[in-house]
Design a protein around this nucleic acid. Structure first.
Length: 585
RNA sequence: GUCUCCAUAGCUCAGCUGGAUAGAGCGUUUGCCUCCUAAGCGAAAGGCCGCAGGUUCGAAUCCUGCUGGGGACACCA
């Protein structure tokens, strides 16, 4: 509809330029927008006002000329000039009704892009370290990332979802040691658990699993394990040095078996995370291992490429990437003097790998704490010879948890946190998915657990689902009656209707495809959530003032056909957010 | 110190990328079930859109400065 009117205006402008009423060198971008107030028609354009200055004419005069030059259209009832020079368009109810036909014909495809786009897009999200179960903070990234991916797919892109598994590095070593120590406890040893170890209950569970699978292969007496170690923090020592010493000790004592134990922990947690996310409606095409970057030689290759293009230098034995050449505020170490590559080096290799896999665009959903990381990663991408704009980083602010008025402190290390799984169990997956996505990702979010749990019925997601369930219920009643729905009759009556509630629903329905498109191009799923609330609201109003199943076949058919269209769009929108559309509630 | 995000109703937040009288939920006051689901609908009250400039026909929206808040940042994975 908007395109249609834009074309009409363009035609009118062409005519005016040809007959000399307007100068030839104007090339306005024609904007057609939905009106807020229905007395201003259905759609409005401000071209006349934007043309006023270059054409050196009064905007209302220009508007008059445009209207006179406008080609005939059977989709419009009238056009008028309003305010300082708006042109308001009034659409015939017949053409407004066409959207209902479209929706019913296209079904679940309504709102999805009709043309597949060439671009391959990768969305990488969550990627939490596999050192423990996901907590509610990760939930937001999961809901946001998954929804962005789904919306992009709906907009016609070829989308791949990926989880980067940080299965290398010190954090994982600490986890392995933590598992080992709990394992030793299961073997009957007793000692004080290190201050810096992972203390969560899940570590016991994994240790028990290790014991069942590998018997006492990893068993050493506490005496041997703890001889000649530096002091831990509670004794006045340094907890970091202490845990590092334990990692070394664990390696010495276990030798080759260290990796076996390490992998027991890694796989247990990775599978737990995979399972958890899957239950949250979040599934991936690829679980990418950080370790694999080293074994395939990607890290070396990436560094070699940077070396070859002259972006590396040596200083004090370390190898540095000259990221300041690309706007970073300092250079970064990629390889330490001892030959170990840094975490950053892995990241460079990872992004090289992403582009080499043929993704045209790569979207990283990161927690807000990675903010400072963006410049250097983009710098590396540029240095490798790729266009850094092909990487889009979306930062997700943390959800700050409250229990009532009290802020909940969370730490994976100490094991005191609310897991995503607990949250799902208590609040429900639908409500969680929806709630996480109702707010813009870059805004802070207060997540009050008490509120989410105790007042879950006030959650807007139920409001939307309720509208869907109501329609389903009416349809069920219809099926059990002697009446049949005559769609053609319904559409005709609807086209002749001048009911305000019906018009506003039609208007809202017509906005769905562009809402999906906007949400996709701006990576803003909350637009869908807001849209659905509005649509549900329009429907609830309509439902309350009109009975659907009435004797009069004309009224009945038109109301039912409109409701069916609403039901379809609600279902499509909820599906995009991975929220269920229940038949009854 | 540098970077970044934010500031809109009592509270939590929208505001369609610059449009006409700034919206919703919760909370407050209040009306509506002999009728398809009251997890709903209607009405009322509630606003210096943080402050000050600038850009133009027009600013909550764009630019600059200020104030106030969240967060990030040190060869740490």
């Amino acid at each position: 509809m908007k395109q249609h009117i834009t074309a009409l205006i363009q035609a009118a402008l062409d005519t005016l330029v040809q007959n000399g009423s307007l100068p030839a060198d104007i090339s306005p971008s024609i904007m057609v927008e939905n009106t807020r107030d229905k007395s201003h028609g259905d759609l409005a354009s401000n071209v006349a006002m934007t043309l006023a200055k270059p054409a050196r004419r009064n905007p209302r005069d220009i508007a008059t000329m445009i209207i006179e030059a406008l080609p005939q259209s059977d989709m419009l009832t009238k056009t008028e000039i309003a305010g300082p020079g708006f042109i308001n368009f009034f659409i015939t109810s017949a053409s407004a009704t066409k959207v209902v036909e479209d929706i019913l014909a296209q079904g679940t495809d309504f709102g999805r892009s009709k043309t597949a786009k060439e671009d391959k897009i990768q969305v990488e999200f969550v990627s939490a370290n596999p050192t423990g179960p996901l907590h509610v903070g990760h939930g937001r990234g999961a809901a946001y990332g998954a929804t962005v991916a789904d919306i992009l797919a709906a907009d016609g892109y070829n989308v791949s979802r990926e989880y980067y598994v940080n299965d290398a590095g010190r954090q994982m070593d600490i986890l392995a040691v933590s598992v080992w120590l709990r394992y030793l406890e299961h073997c009957g040893e007793s000692f004080t658990f290190p201050a810096n170890g992972y203390k969560g209950q899940y570590v016991y569970d994994i240790a028990l699993q290790a014991k069942q699978q590998h018997a006492d292969q990893f068993h050493h007496s506490a005496e041997i394990v703890f001889t000649d170690l530096p002091l831990d923090e509670p004794e006045g020592g340094d907890k970091e040095k202490y845990i590092d010493a334990l990692i070394v000790r664990c390696n010495e004592l276990l030798g080759d078996k260290f990796k076996t134990l390490f992998d027991v922990g890694l796989e247990a947690i990775r599978e737990d995370i995979r399972d958890d996310l899957s239950g949250f409606g979040v599934d991936y095409q690829e679980w990418f291992s950080e370790r694999s970057l080293t074994s395939t030689g990607d890290v070396d290759q990436a560094l070699a490429r940077l070396e070859a293009s002259g972006h590396l230098f040596e200083k004090e034995g370390n190898t540095w990437f000259k990221s300041t050449d690309f706007g970073d505020d300092k250079d970064r170490v990629v390889k330490r003097a001892n030959g170990a590559t840094t975490y950053f080096a892995s990241d460079i290799a990872y992004h090289m790998n992403k582009f080499d896999r043929g993704f045209d665009k790569v979207i990283n959903i990161w927690g807000a704490d990675h903010h400072g990381y963006i410049t250097r990663v983009k710098a590396a991408i540029s240095a490798l010879g790729y266009d850094a704009n092909r990487l889009v980083v979306k930062l997700v602010q943390f959800a700050i948890l409250y229990r009532g008025a009290e802020r909940v402190q969370m730490s994976t290390r100490s094991g005191s946190f609310v897991t995503l799984r607990e949250l799902r169990d208590e609040v429900g997956t639908d409500a969680c998915r929806f709630f996480y996505v109702t707010r813009k990702a870059d805004n802070h979010m207060d997540f009050d657990l008490e509120l989410a749990k105790s007042q879950s019925k006030d959650n807007p997601v139920y409001y939307i689902q309720y509208a869907h369930a109501r329609i389903c219920s009416v349809m069920e009643k219809l099926a059990n009656s002697e009446w049949q729905l005559d769609s053609q009759n319904g559409l005709q009556v609807l086209a002749d209707s001048s009911d305000d509630d019906e018009k506003s629903i039609l208007n809202q329905l017509a906005k769905y495809p562009e809402t999906v498109h906007n949400a996709a191009t701006n990576f803003e799923p909350h637009l869908i959530a807001n849209y659905l609330k509005d649509l549900a609201s329009a429907f609830h109003t309509y439902y309350n003032s009109n009975k659907m199943l009435v004797e009069d076949a004309k009224q009945r058919d038109s109301r039912l056909i409109l409701s069916l269209a609403v039901k379809q769009v609600l279902a499509n929108g909820l599906a995009l957010l991975s929220v269920s559309a229940p038949q009854r509630m």
